[in-house]
Design a protein around this nucleic acid. Structure first.
Length: 756
DNA sequence: GTAGGGTTAG
C-alpha cells in the first residue's frame, strides 16, 4: 500500500508519513509526527491529520485528537469519522456523541459509514432520545436502506429496552441479514421470550439467512441472561446436532448455564467436548471451567482447573475467589486473595467485590467492612455491584455509620436508584433499626421491582409492623407486581410476629389457590412457627404430617422452638428426635430439649440429653457445658437459697458465653431465674445483674441509659425473659435484634408481646 | 483510509 501512496508525497511528507506508519507502537513517534506536521503547516492534509487523530485515539490521548480536529480549518467528514469511530470503539460513548453533534454544528452531514458507530454509542448509553434523533437523521437523509445502519438501529432499540421498536425497524429492513437477525434474537432470548425467539430462529431460513456462530452465541447467552439455563443448554445441544462448531464464547456461556443448573455430569461432558476441539487453553473457557466447577460444588476440580492455567489472568483469579467463597471456603479464598496481592497482580473491582461478598456471605462482616476500606485506599471505585455486597455486612452487625456512608456514596455516584442497591439499602436500614429510613429509600426509588417491594415488606415484618406490611402487600399488587415465594415468606413472618393465626392461614391458602405458588419448605417452616408460637402445637404438628415432602431441619426446628416456648414435652421429644438425626452436630437442639425437661424439673432426663451430646462427640461444645452448669445451678437453687456460689457460677457463665457467642448462639440467661419467685429473682440478681449482663455481652453500657443491642444472635425465650426483667429493674429501654426480628423492651414488657 | 451482532462478580 505504502508504495502506491508514497510517490504522492514530497520528501518532507514522506518523512512524516513514515513516522506515522511506524507510530502505532509508540506514543513518542506520534508526538514527533505531530510536531513535523505542525512545523510543515500541513495540518489540513485530510489523510495525514486523520491518521494522526486515529493514532492519538489508539493511545487513549483523546484531548490531543480533539485538538487536531479543531485546528483543521475545514474538518472533513472523514476526520470526524475517524475520531467518532475510535471513541465508540474505546467505549467513550458520551464523547463520541458529543463529537457527532459538533460535526453537525460544523454543517458536515454524516454518511452511512459513520452512522453505525454513532447509533452504537446511543445504544451503549441507553440514550433512547439521542438514538431516536439519529434515527430521524437517518430517515430524512435516506440512509435507512443500508444493511449496516439498519442492523445497528435494531441493536440500539434493543439496548434501550425498546424491543417493539427494534422489531419494527427489523420488519422494515429491505434485507435482513445475519447481523440484524442475531441482534433481535439475542434480545428476545435476554427477555426470556422463548417462544418468539424460537419462532424467529426457525423463520430465519425463510429469509434466506443461515445462522452463524454469533447467532448461536447470542441466543445461548441471551437465555443465560434471562436465567433460562435449560433453554441455553438445549440450544447448545441443538447447535451441536445441527453440525455447528461451538467456539470459546459458546463454551464460556454454556458452562455458565450448566453451573447454574448444577448439572455436573453435563459439565464434564462439555469439558471433554472443548478439550477435543482444542479450546482448553482459551482464556474465557478456563475461567468458565473454574466457575462451573465452583457452582457444582466440586472444589477439588475447581482448584485443579485453576492450577492448570499457565497464565492466570484477572478473570481466572476472580472465578477462583468466587468459587471458593461460594463453597464456604472463605479462608482459602482470603489466602488466594492475599497471594494475588503479594504477587503484585492488578486486582480490579470484580476481585474486590467478590472477596467483600464472600466475607459477608460467610459471616465475616467486620472483615468485609475492612476490605471495603482497603479497596478504596487501593484507589478502586466501588460500583453498583460492590455496594449491595457490602450493605448486608453493615446490616448484620448494625454498623449504621458504615451503612450511611455507603448510602451517601450511592447518592453521589447516582447508583441509588439501581434495584440491587435500593433493595439492599432498604434491608440494611431495617436491620439497623431505622425502618423509617428504609421507607424513605423505598419511596425515593423511581421504579421498583419485586425485590424492592419484598425488602420493605420484610423490613416491616422484622419490626413487627404487621399493618404496614399488609398495606405494602396490597399496594404492590395494585402496582402490578404478582407476589412471589419471598413475598409470602415475609407476610407469614409478619403474621407470626403479630400472632395473627387466621390471617396467616389465609395468606398460606391464597398462595396456593389464588396465586398458584406451591408452598415450599420455608413456608411450612413459617407456618409451623406461627402456629407453634401461638400455642397451637397440635395444629402445627398436624400440618407437618400433611406436608407433601419430607420436612427439613428448619420445620422441625420451628416446632421444637415452639415446644420450648410452651414447654410441651411430648411434641418436643418428637421434634428433637427428628432433629438429632437431621443435624446431629447442632448443639442448639440438645439445649432446647434439655430446657424443656428442666422446666418440668426432670433432671435425670436433662442429664440423659447431656449424655447423648457427649456420646456424639459434642463434649467440647459449649452447649454441653451449658447444660451441665444449668443443672448445677438448678440443684443449687432447689436446695440452698443463700446462693453463696453465685460469683463462681457467674465466672463460669462468662467463660461459656464467650464460647457460645463464637459459635453463633445467644447464651441463655434465665435458668437462674426460672422456677424462682419474682421477688427472689430481684434479690438474687440485685447485685449481679450488671455483671451477668456484661458476661452475656448483651449489655455493656452504664445502667439507666437506653441501649440498642443489635447482634446477629439467636435470641431464645430465656434471653427474652431476662431482657424484660432488666428493663424493669434497671428502668431502661432496650432494643434488640436477633436473626430476624426486633424486640423493644420497656418497663418489663416487650413490643412483640408474649409470643416469646 | 472507516460498520453493525455474541463471553466473567450480586
Amino acid at each position: 500500500m505504502s508504495r502506491q501512496v508514497l510517490p504522492l508525497f514530497d520528501n518532507l511528507h514522506r518523512g512524516v508519513f513514515l513516522c506515522l506508519t511506524s507510530a502505532a507502537s509508540s506514543l513518542s513517534h506520534v508526538r514527533q509526527a505531530h510536531a513535523h506536521i505542525l512545523k510543515a503547516g500541513i495540518i489540513d492534509h485530510t489523510a495525514l491529520s486523520s491518521k494522526l487523530i486515529s493514532l492519538y485515539v489508539n493511545h487513549q490521548c483523546f484531548p490531543e485528537a480533539q485538538l487536531i480536529l479543531h485546528s483543521i480549518p475545514e474538518p472533513s467528514l472523514f476526520s470526524f469519522s475517524t475520531l467518532i469511530y475510535a471513541l465508540t470503539r474505546s467505549n467513550l460513548l458520551a464523547l463520541s456523541l458529543s463529537v457527532f453533534s459538533q460535526m453537525l454544528s460544523y454543517g458536515v452531514l454524516p454518511d452511512s459509514r459513520i452512522i453505525p458507530s454513532v447509533i452504537k454509542a446511543c445504544g451503549g448509553l441507553s440514550a433512547l432520545e439521542a438514538g431516536k434523533q439519529v434515527h430521524g437523521i437517518v430517515f430524512t437523509s435516506g440512509l435507512d436502506s443500508d444493511d449496516c445502519v439498519g442492523a445497528s438501529l435494531v441493536n440500539m432499540y434493543v439496548k434501550c429496552d425498546e424491543i417493539r421498536d427494534a422489531h419494527k425497524v427489523f420488519d422494515r429492513l429491505p434485507q435482513r441479514d445475519v447481523v440484524s437477525c442475531s441482534a433481535l434474537l439475542s434480545a428476545y432470548a435476554r427477555k426470556g421470550r422463548v417462544d418468539v425467539t424460537m419462532k424467529l430462529f426457525n423463520e430465519m431460513k425463510d429469509f434466506g439467512v443461515e445462522p452463524n456462530i454469533i447467532t448461536w452465541n447470542g441466543v445461548i447467552s441471551g437465555f443465560n441472561h434471562s436465567r433460562d439455563y435449560i433453554e441455553a443448554v438445549v440450544m447448545f445441544q441443538r447447535m451441536h446436532s445441527e453440525g455447528y462448531y461451538p467456539d470459546d464464547t459458546t463454551f464460556s456461556s454454556v458452562l455458565s448455564a450448566v453451573g447454574d443448573l448444577k448439572e455436573l455430569k453435563i459439565g464434564i461432558q462439555v469439558h471433554c467436548c472443548l478439550i477435543k476441539q482444542g479450546l482448553g487453553q482459551e482464556r474465557y473457557v478456563r475461567s468458565a471451567l473454574v466457575d462451573m466447577y465452583g457452582k457444582c460444588a466440586c472444589t477439588l476440580e475447581l482448584t485443579r482447573a485453576f492450577d492448570e492455567i499457565d497464565e492466570k489472568d484477572i478473570g481466572a483469579c476472580n472465578a477462583v475467589i468466587t468459587g471458593l467463597c461460594r463453597n464456604g471456603l472463605i479462608y482459602n479464598a482470603l489466602k488466594a486473595f492475599e497471594q494475588f496481592r503479594d504477587k503484585g497482580m492488578e486486582l480490579n473491582v470484580v476481585t474486590w467485590t467478590s472477596i467483600v461478598a464472600g466475607c459477608t456471605q460467610n459471616g465475616r462482616d467486620i472483615q468485609a467492612l475492612q476490605l471495603f476500606r482497603e479497596m478504596q485506599s487501593a484507589g478502586l471505585k466501588p460500583n453498583s455491584v460492590t455496594i449491595p455486597c457490602l450493605l448486608p455486612a453493615c446490616g448484620n452487625i448494625a454498623a449504621l455509620m458504615h451503612g450511611k456512608a455507603a448510602h451517601c456514596f450511592a447518592l453521589r455516584t447516582g447508583i441509588a436508584d439501581d434495584f440491587f442497591v435500593g433493595s439492599a439499602l432498604i434491608d440494611m436500614y431495617a436491620k439497623c433499626g431505622r425502618i423509617h429510613m428504609s421507607r424513605l429509600c423505598f419511596d425515593k426509588m423511581p421504579t421498583k421491582n419485586l425485590v424492592c417491594w419484598n425488602a420493605i415488606m420484610g423490613g416491616y415484618a422484622m419490626h413487627g409492623k404487621t399493618k404496614e406490611a399488609k398495606e405494602i402487600f396490597d399496594l404492590m399488587q395494585r402496582a402490578g407486581h404478582e407476589p412471589d415465594l419471598i413475598s409470602f415468606c415475609c407476610m407469614l413472618s409478619a403474621c407470626s410476629q403479630g400472632g395473627l393465626v387466621e390471617e396467616g392461614w389465609s395468606f398460606f391458602n391464597s398462595m396456593t389457590k389464588e396465586h398458584r405458588i406451591e408452598a415450599k419448605m420455608e413456608h411450612y417452616a413459617s407456618m409451623v412457627n406461627l402456629l407453634g408460637r401461638a400455642g397451637k402445637l397440635e395444629e402445627a404438628y398436624a400440618l407437618i404430617n400433611q406436608m407433601p415432602f419430607e420436612p427439613d431441619a428448619c420445620v422441625w426446628g420451628a416446632l421444637l422452638g415452639s415446644c420450648r416456648l410452651h414447654n410441651n414435652v411430648s411434641l418436643g421429644e418428637i421434634a428433637a428426635e427428628k432433629l438429632f438425626k437431621l443435624e446431629p452436630e447442632n448443639p442448639g437442639n440438645y439445649v432446647l430439649l434439655s430446657n424443656i425437661y428442666a422446666s418440668k424439673a426432670r433432671w435425670s432426663e436433662v442429664n440423659a440429653v447431656r449424655d447423648i451430646m457427649i456420646s456424639r462427640g459434642l463434649k467440647k461444645n459449649p452447649g454441653c457445658s451449658w447444660i451441665e452448669v444449668k443443672n448445677k445451678v438448678h440443684m443449687l437453687l432447689a436446695g440452698d437459697k443463700s446462693h453463696a456460689e453465685m460469683p463462681q457460677i457467674l465466672e463460669k457463665l462468662n467463660e461459656l458465653s464467650m464460647e457460645m457467642k463464637k459459635a453463633g448462639y445467644c447464651p441463655e440467661t434465665d435458668f437462674v431465674l426460672q422456677d424462682v419467685e419474682e421477688q427472689d429473682k430481684e434479690q438474687m440478681l440485685g447485685e449481679h445483674s450488671e455483671k451477668l449482663a456484661v458476661a452475656l455481652g448483651l449489655l455493656n453500657t452504664p445502667a439507666g441509659t437506653p441501649l440498642q443491642v443489635i447482634k446477629n444472635l439467636r435470641i431464645c425465650r430465656d434471653c427474652h425473659a431476662f431482657m424484660k426483667f432488666i428493663s424493669r429493674i434497671e428502668g431502661r429501654e432496650i432494643f434488640v435484634r436477633d436473626t430476624n426480628r426486633f424486640h423493644h423492651f420497656k418497663d418489663g414488657a416487650c413490643s412483640c408481646g408474649d409470643f416469646w
